[in-house]
Design a protein around this nucleic acid. Structure first.
Lengths: 235, 235
DNA sequence: AAATCTATGAGGTCTAGATCACTGTCAAAC
DNA sequence: GTTTGACAGTGATCTAGACCTCATAGATTT
């Protein structure tokens, strides 16, 4: 009978604790020094066990802070254009949002270009923080030509614009063009999202089109890097 | 000037010795105990350095025998395994890449899980840096079960694996699952990509399936946040 | 009230040993 | 000649400390 190395036994022990919800997602687990005492091994050995779990993406180390059970990230399925609200509901999370600003104004140059409008067509620009289960997921700037949302209540626009448009205006959502990139959080955004400046941000820029081909929405979103994941299927 | 950890310095020292043919392919290098004396570090530290080279497939450990320079083959330019080449060409950039490692080894825990294989099924793991106009764009780790690529030349695997599989092995590529997220650059990746630690990284993980549903490829790519954009169309 | 400093505790790295399992060699036994 | 077994050398695992940087919270100062 061959005995497994201690660090693999500990790996399995810890995995079981997490699966049994003894340590929940996002929790800080005891420090390496505490755990090495608890398991009766040296810290080097315990670190080896932790490392295997970090490699699997089950744990997450943060220097100076501790070791955490990795967040199961919110995943966006890229099949079908849906809004944030449906996305959260599909994952069993409670969507909410906080509007930072909501103004009708002259479009900027990039907004004019992306939305195929001229300077004399006013746009509605909203800045929002969006939450899933009260945890900030992203900061979003959305621009919509004013004529598209004319006659709608503010609450109808901010809560679930896509659904409102389909129900009240009989406008069908068509394609969406997206570009994804990575950047670091600025001071302002970090504060909104309750993270630190310099943390990783997943930046999404999306132009959404109606089924007749007219662009109707230009959204720039900054997702917290470790709370969000895009999920896509190809072919 | 920030000092790199000793084990990374030793990693680089050893790599240089191998590249300078001081230690040739297939040679046994000095034992861990000898090397730790030579570099004036403890054996644990030296082992850490060796480990990084084993991960890259540059060295190979044999219990009871020693550590050997792995059978690394010639590096070559490659194109288009994951569409990188087309992406670069579309932007008018010259694509190129550098293979860091190319090695058959035991799968890691996450590779076993993603590729649906067991520990006794060896995998081919390739690490490479991809460039656009000589500027490093991403670092990529691709893992393929060894039996899938058995009998193929290295050039057939690295240049266009998909095409080779369809032609020589009559295997049809099916779906691919991708997740995109954002993170910060580690020390090692930062060095490869010529950026600083803590800069923004766009991370793509892809599992590619054959048409019969078997997963055959697991790729993890880290793009420099401000040198790359992912473009998608929805619906 | 805001900004700054400081103590604490976290993970990251490193040391100088130790014991174990495995391999290859080589001499002794068959 | 062939087999066996002891042995020396290797990597694998493990220990019990050490000092470092980084993050955070609380105390202090402004």
């Amino acid at each position: 009978m061959v005995g497994l190395p201690i660090y693999i036994q500990i790996h399995n022990d810890i995995k079981r604790k997490i699966e049994a919800d003894k340590w929940k997602i996002g929790d800080r687990i005891p420090s390496e020094r505490e755990l090495s005492t608890e398991f009766g091994v040296s810290r080097m050995t315990l670190r080896q066990a932790i490392q295997t779990l970090v490699d699997e993406g089950i744990l997450e180390r943060r220097v100076g802070s501790g070791t955490f059970v990795a967040n199961q990230k919110v995943q966006e399925k890229m099949s079908g254009v849906t809004g944030f609200t449906d996305l959260m509901l599909a994952q069993g999370k409670k969507p909410s949002s906080k509007t930072i600003s909501y103004h009708t104004m002259e479009p900027s140059l990039s907004e004019m270009e992306k939305l195929h409008i001229t300077q004399d067509q006013p746009v509605l620009r909203m800045e929002r923080i969006r939450y899933g289960d009260e945890v900030p997921i992203c900061f979003e700037v959305a621009t919509v030509p004013e004529n598209i949302v004319a006659g709608l209540e503010k609450s109808e626009v901010t809560s679930s614009l896509y659904r409102t448009l389909e129900q009240k205006k009989d406008l069908q959502i068509g394609k969406a063009q997206q570009t994804v990139s990575a950047m670091l959080a600025s001071e302002r955004i970090a504060e909104y999202l309750n993270i630190k400046r310099g943390e990783a941000i997943l930046r999404l820029r999306q132009i959404t089109y109606l089924q007749d081909g007219r662009p109707f929405e230009y959204v720039r979103t900054q997702y917290v890097g470790d709370r969000f994941e895009f999920y896509l299927e190809k072919e």
